[in-house]
Computed example of a mutant assay.
Amino acid sequence: MTNNLPVIVFEDDDFVVMDKPSGLLVHPSWLSKNDDDFAVDQMKRYLNVDKIHNVHRLDRPTCGLLLFAKHVDAAQKIGLMFEQNLIEKNYIAICRGWAPSSGEIDYALKPEHDKIANKFSNPVKEAQDALTHFTCLKQSQIEIELNGHPTGRFSFVSIRPKTGRKHQIRRHFKHIHHPLLGDTRHGCNKTNRTLKDRLNWSRLALRANKMQFLHPYSQHLISIEAPRSIEFDFMLNQLDLL
């Protein structure tokens, strides 16, 4: 067992927010056979408690803001706010191609069925409404042979999901033909291989960088922002997107 401690971005009597690194699972699951540390473990070590309440999740490869509740009542209140889409979340990402200056992706998504994690559930489910807003912050074109083209085009985007479906951002950007870089499940494998070979980049270019909500006890507006990581800035610089 490792003794890593989380990078804390926000904390009060009821909630604590960490900056989760890419590759760290939130909690043990069927995916975690070879893992000995999780975000919940790091938070419990930091707070020196036996129990902590994780009220939402980030995919393993996604980095950024991850909120925990310190007690049951706080977990119930903030959990309901997540369910009602009252938590405003913002992400930054790098995608392939030149994304539009701004847009709305209104595309229903069927729940993803995993044969191991969801083996006892019905694999056939109705598609659920899913809505994502985005703004293109910068576009670039660099001299790197990509998918048969002599140059590669990329976009740095800011993303505001209005619903919270599994892999929503990754699936929505695949739908509009601008897959996120480093996405091994919904991205472009050829693009990912080229970037790994030429630029030594293999991580998912998706970061949860902002969160805003009305505190359920004080009713004060809580705005939390995490700076870009060194790894994310490295990729932005390599693709001329800074």
Rank of each mutant, 00 (worst) to 15 (best):
S29N: 05
A208D: 09
D35H: 12
D183Q: 09
R57D: 13
V40F: 06
S32M: 05
M1I: 13
L137S: 02
Q141W: 03
Q76P: 04
I116S: 08
F10E: 05
S223F: 02
K77M: 13
K44V: 12
L67T: 07
D106P: 03
L58I: 11
T135Q: 13
E145F: 00
S223A: 13
L109Q: 08
D183Y: 04
N192R: 07
N90H: 11
Q212H: 01
L5V: 10
H172Y: 09
L241I: 12
M18D: 04
K70H: 11
L199C: 14
R45Y: 04
G79S: 14
S223N: 11
L80N: 08
R45K: 04
Y217M: 05
R96S: 10
F82M: 04
S229W: 09
F213N: 09
N118Q: 07
M235H: 08
H220P: 02
V9T: 14
F38Y: 15
E112M: 09
S140R: 01
G23A: 09
L25V: 14
F156I: 01
C136G: 02
T135D: 12
C63S: 15
E145R: 00
S218N: 06
E104R: 11
D36P: 02
L221K: 09
E225I: 03
S202E: 12
G152W: 06
F82I: 10
G97C: 02
F82H: 07
F234W: 03
P179E: 04
Y46H: 14
I87C: 03
C95K: 02
L146D: 05
D19E: 15
A205S: 13
L221T: 10
G97F: 12
Q84T: 06
D12I: 09
E231V: 03
T62L: 08
G103C: 00
G79Q: 07
I87W: 07
Q76W: 02
A69N: 06
K33M: 09
D129C: 00
G187K: 08
R193L: 15
D197G: 00
G187M: 04
A117G: 11
F120G: 02
L199K: 06
H53G: 02
R198M: 07
P111K: 03
D14I: 02
N209S: 15
M1P: 12
A75E: 01
L206S: 06
D114T: 01
N200P: 00
I222Q: 14
I224F: 10
D114M: 10
N192L: 05
Y217G: 00
H133D: 06
L195S: 11
L66F: 01
K77R: 15
F120R: 04
W30P: 02
D13C: 09
H133A: 07
T151F: 05
K125W: 05
A127G: 06
S202H: 14
P21Q: 04
L25Q: 09
I92H: 10
L206Q: 04
N48L: 10
L66I: 08
Q139M: 05
T194W: 00
R207Q: 15
P21N: 08
N3P: 03
L195E: 10
E112G: 03
S140N: 03
W201M: 15
H71K: 13
Q84I: 00
G148H: 00
P161V: 04
H53R: 14
E126R: 06
L204T: 14
S22R: 08
R96M: 13
V16A: 07
I222C: 14
H56Q: 15
I116R: 13
